[in-house]
Design a protein around this nucleic acid. Sequence first.
DNA 1: GCCGTTTTCGGCCCGACTGTTTTCAGTCG
Length: 579
Amino acid sequence: MTLSNREIANIFDSVADMLELKGEIVHRVLSYRHAADAIRETPRSLSAMAEVGELKTIPSIGKTLEEKIQEMLATGTLQMYENLKAEIPPGLTEILHVSGVGPKRALRLWKELGIADLGQLKEAAEAGKLRAMSGMGAKTEQRILEGIEQLEKLKTEGRTPLGVALPIAQSLLDLLMEMPQAVNGSVAGSLRRARPTIGDIDLLVASDDPQPIIERLGSLANVARVLWTGPEKTSVELLNGKQVDLLIIPPDRWGAALHHFTGSQAHNIHFRELALEKGLSLSERGFKRVDTGEEVLVATEEEVFALVGMPYIPPEIREDWGEIEAALENRLPDLITLDDMHADLHMHTTWSDGTLSIREMANAALARGRKFIVITDHSRSLGITNGLSIERLLAHQQEIRQVDREMGGKIRVFHGTEMEITADGTLDYPDEVLEKLDFVIASLHTGLRQPREQVTMRILNAINNPHVDLIGHPRGQLIPNREPADLDMDAVFQAAKASGIALEINANPHRLDLEAQYARRAVEMGIPLSINTDAHRAGEMDLLHYGILTARRGWVEPASVINTWSLERFLEWAQKRGR
DNA sequence: GCCGTTTTCGGCCCGACTGTTTTCAGTCG
């Protein structure tokens, strides 16, 4: 059984933890961590890359780690890891992830108190045994207990989906920006980069008078308690348990601060190295000339980039996935925006599990400026959604044609389906039915936990059917708690490329599927993408921007997305696909 | 362990906060 990318990344992270506990130099530890992160963000399978000798094209993978990956692929294990596990109790790496416990403390907890896992740490802290150690007091003990609580909560609840955090953050920020002292404001952190899930909500406000703004946040209705407050920052916990960190920045330092707190950390490190090459040391407070020590304040992010000699890099792609090199060479992508979109090719009505009629959905789409839509109710085998029998599918078409006529050309309404790829891989409607439809989506909703070969075979079968135009939410993940299906994405992309089919970026914030790195790979291979809301009610049509954010993270330009095409071009493309 | 128009060795971002110190190590983002 070949190890997956995820499993290999997890082993590298464990190795990093154990090396850190052993007191290994920090840069060696970081090499393993960076490699683990890079592997998680790699859209191709390591085994396929190993076969063609391309492992070293992954950033942070050099000769040594390439060999270790090859060893894992060949043997299913890593001897070095096994040796480390014999030396360091594996449970000890768990307590390394408690906030307030680093490698030094973890090691001392083990050696001096015999604590080897999270449970033992909790027990000892509750019994007040930690404060006996030199350098540890009651406060540290308390902080560790809170850290354990936080970690346990994260395990049960998972991270916060973007679609939950962003509206909360934006509404809090709007309230703070009503203050006369607030000059400028932004969400920051992974939320501004639009990662699919985030930890804490980071807010930045520019002002010369922090206190009133800090007090305002603490007094808002959905704030449960103030966790901590200082002269320029504060942390609060919302009623829903989410933590919000607010930082107030002097307006003349805004650019540097916003850049710093947007990250990612990897982007910042790389960017600062470049700044140093230009004799500039960059921190969240601004630049400093290395030779004279003179401060150079930057009020806008544009100036931050300009001082290091590059154009503005949009926040969504600041992950150190090559954006800095691209900026230096003036080949940043012209990222897609919401304004580029004028079609939605995936939505449901009361014919299956939607809440509005075809007519109501058409009007809702028209009100949002869409020029054409496809009604794609579920197919017959998905009984729980009231999926359409062939007879109902044909009646469905009649009503759609009627609504399309009624709309008088203000918006075009087409007839499609979101057809099940059933558990045995057959498609839910025969070809002679599919060829009557304007547009066919095929999706997996069942059997997502099947073994890799089986689930991949099913999706390839759909891709290879000439009547299928789009694979809906290809990986089947649900954010934050359902993992994607174990698909061989290299095979999926190759088949998609060969068949000319499109792949979806499902805009629903619980899906965001394809995720950014896969979207980017698809574009690189010349596979068309389609960004759709999968709306079951009118309001869900307003979630389109999450799909746009995801596409932007994947370096997607408008031309790669069929929803940006003219009606004529879309129809011509769909015609060519077997009908 | 990675990486390279100041390359194959010697670097590897930067500052703030915390608690327990007696001048700073450890941790965090």
